[in-house]
């Protein structure tokens, strides 16, 4: 007991997380997915700018919100986030989650991490940091590219946003609404990511994670479409995914955004809890 005890026996968590984030962001597939996500608002914006000016959606041909983007560029990031949330954003975080644990296991490198003098809890935090970084980056890419494309390509009434309620918001408030939707989308994605991480911790095949998450989303969609299963709707994560549109209403209704965020929180807590418990017991 008299020997000098080193004050720190493990690397600081921040450094671990930073290393993991650097590692995740260097993966080509992450970069490709992020680039694809950035293409969504650009493609939407160019398509709308080429085909329709204001009022072109007279017969309501566009898929929902997209019609509202014409001549109203700042709606573009919100519409693009809504479109991407349906499949591409969950795919991105599911890929990151699959690589985080199942991918390491399939390469046999997870064993090394489990043997390393790093607490299992810290290992999960580190892996989760990588997934979190991907989720945040993905949403930020869509939102920022969306705002730029919306203002440059689609244009609008001098930097303002026309809400669905027919009111006009200034640039600052419009960007605030975009940021709100972006934050809300990140929350929903983190719920998906937590569940994906939990699945990832049980398997050593990354494809299982992808299949489970995307298949799960499709099953949720099917369940939501069956009228006799209406009672199930409050339990489904995807139920509240239309709430992003609420940010385009004025005055801003927060009920939908809040309840879907709460639902996402439940999924998040469950996913993280299962992941931590499983990783504490995992042998390799």
């Amino acid at each position: 007991m008299t020997t000098a005890v080193p004050t720190r026996t493990s690397a600081p968590l921040g450094r671990l997380a930073a290393a993991e984030v650097r590692w995740v962001l260097r993966r080509p597939r992450t970069l490709v997915l992020l680039a694809l996500l950035g293409l969504i608002p650009v493609a939407l914006g160019i398509g709308i700018a080429l085909t329709g000016g204001p009022g072109a959606g007279e017969d309501g041909d566009g898929p929902g919100l997209v019609a509202a983007v014409a001549g109203n560029g700042l709606v573009l990031p919100i519409a693009a986030l809504g479109l991407a949330l349906a499949l591409l954003l969950p795919l991105t975080v599911a890929t990151a989650s699959a690589d985080a644990l199942a991918g390491e296991a399939s390469h046999g490198t997870l064993r090394g991490l489990l043997l390393a003098p790093v607490g299992r809890g810290r290992l999960v935090v580190m892996k989760a940091a990588g997934v979190l970084a991907v989720a945040v980056l993905a949403v930020v890419v869509v939102a920022v590219v969306g705002v730029i494309t919306g203002m440059v390509v689609v244009g609008g009434p001098s930097g303002t946003l026309i809400t669905l309620s027919g009111t006009t918001l200034g640039l600052g408030e419009a960007l605030g609404r975009v940021a709100l939707v972006a934050g809300w989308t990140i929350g929903q994605l983190l719920a998906v990511a937590a569940v994906a991480l939990a699945i990832s911790s049980f398997t050593e095949h990354p494809l299982v994670v992808l299949a489970a998450v995307l298949g799960g989303l499709i099953v949720f969609g099917v369940l939501a479409a069956i009228p006799s299963l209406e009672w199930l709707q409050p339990l489904l994560l995807t139920t509240g995914w239309g709430a992003g549109t609420d940010a385009l209403r004025d005055p801003l209704p927060l009920d939908g955004l809040a309840s879907s965020s709460l639902r996402a929180l439940v999924y998040l807590v469950l996913g993280v809890a299962v992941t931590v418990v499983r990783m504490r017991r995992r042998d390799g």
Partner: peptide, 17 residues
């Protein structure tokens, strides 16, 4: 862990529903 997870789910869903 299972009980805990179930409890969290029940409370959370209860709050939502």
């Amino acid at each position: 862990a299972g009980l805990g997870a179930g409890l969290v789910a029940a409370v959370g869903v209860g709050l939502v529903v």
